[in-house]
Write a protein that binds this DNA or RNA. Structure first.
Lengths: 204, 204
DNA sequence: GCTGATGTTGCACGGAGTGCAAGTTTGCAC
DNA sequence: GTGCAAACTTGCACTCCGTGCAACATCAGC
């Protein structure tokens, strides 16, 4: 996955970006959301206030960054699934593959810190929304014949996202921050159950 | 529905609120989003800048207000459905009842103006999210026996919202701003089709 | 009318977010 | 390595946002 093909510039940018995200998450943990300014974040990340705004337009966006990153990864994996596979099968495979320690930890952190704070939650919701739009685009790529109408694709993508989000929220409420293997197994169970409900049309 | 039980104070507040929402939508139509300041909104609504902030914390929130209002109305209607009715039946009935000129026009306006502008879109998404949470609460009220688990309820509520949103988006893309009876009939068709897809587990 | 409660307004202040014009670092060709 | 162009960082200045506060205006109830 393009490990060493990053130029110095790109390495520096990634490092700066990571430093900012780490800084804002630390400050949010220590002082709570709203308990610090952009200048505090910049100082803590070792950059200028102006540079912070070169990367993010607000502290909220920086806090939600891990969620965007996580969902972008999900999309990459969806594009790699065989085109003939049933859509909900692809979705489940991708989702289960992402319930992995390395990938999910930063997003879980972001979610837990953001919990109950509208300004950050709005960015999280945007991340899921954008992911839904990209799923629509990915389905369109598969469906070369053009047999699927807009409504079907959009409703399906939105429902899959909703099920994934529901499983995540239930899991985070159950095991706040516990990323142990057994906890992640539980997350996979929840994800599978949610997609199963969807496949069954929520018949009770 | 409590038509004349509004005190003078409440009438004034409602009028001020409406004036602000109208003003911000007018300005957005004329100058585009971002082409005006809070002071412009306040002047246009005949109110002070400070008063604007007594009602909304940002122009974006004011623009999205009709969407919040619309979804609140949806919730009221859901609570009025008979408790024994299957959930997806209730959802469909409520949704179809709301596809009505009076109710949907302000939200359609809000959506069209907001289209493609992230800051406002985030508020719209929050409105749908809050509506989903309230649906969860409403389902819980019905389910006195407590037979439904969190995952099922949250996934269902989210999926219903997603289907409603998908139908709305497809409709708005098809008939931008056309609120004629035939157009609203088309919206009802889309809503019914989306819920039908959901009931069928998106089987093709 | 009097009175408390509720709303509105102006003022002031810290902070957000951005354009601009430096200065600094990196990539690339010679 | 020297030089140059592109990309990145930084400081500065500016407008606008969002809110606490205190004074003023309006409304409900007696």
């Amino acid at each position: 996955m393009t490990p060493e093909t990053l130029s110095r510039r790109e390495q520096n940018k990634a490092a700066t970006r990571d430093a900012i995200v780490s800084a804002v998450l630390s400050l949010a943990r220590e002082r709570g959301l709203g308990g610090f300014t952009v200048e505090d974040i910049a100082d803590s990340a070792g950059v200028s206030r102006r540079t912070f705004f070169n990367y993010f337009t607000s502290p909220e966006e920086a806090i939600a960054a891990p969620t965007f990153g996580f969902l972008d990864r999900a999309l990459e994996q969806l594009r790699d699934r065989p085109p003939g596979e049933p859509l909900l099968e692809s979705a489940l495979t991708v989702i289960l593959g992402l319930a992995d320690n390395e990938l999910i930890a930063p997003m879980a952190e972001s979610f837990l810190v953001a919990h109950g704070h509208d300004p950050v939650t709005r960015y999280q919701l945007q991340a899921f929304e954008e992911c839904g739009e990209k799923i629509v685009a990915a389905i369109r790529e598969r469906d070369e014949a053009g047999t699927l109408d807009d409504l079907y694709v959009q409703a399906l993508a939105g429902s899959v996202i909703s099920c994934g989000k529901a499983a995540l929220e239930v899991w985070l409420a159950e095991a706040r921050g516990d990323l142990s293997p057994s906890s992640l197994t539980r997350l996979r169970e929840l994800l599978t159950a949610a997609i199963t409900h969807l496949k069954a049309g929520f018949a009770q």
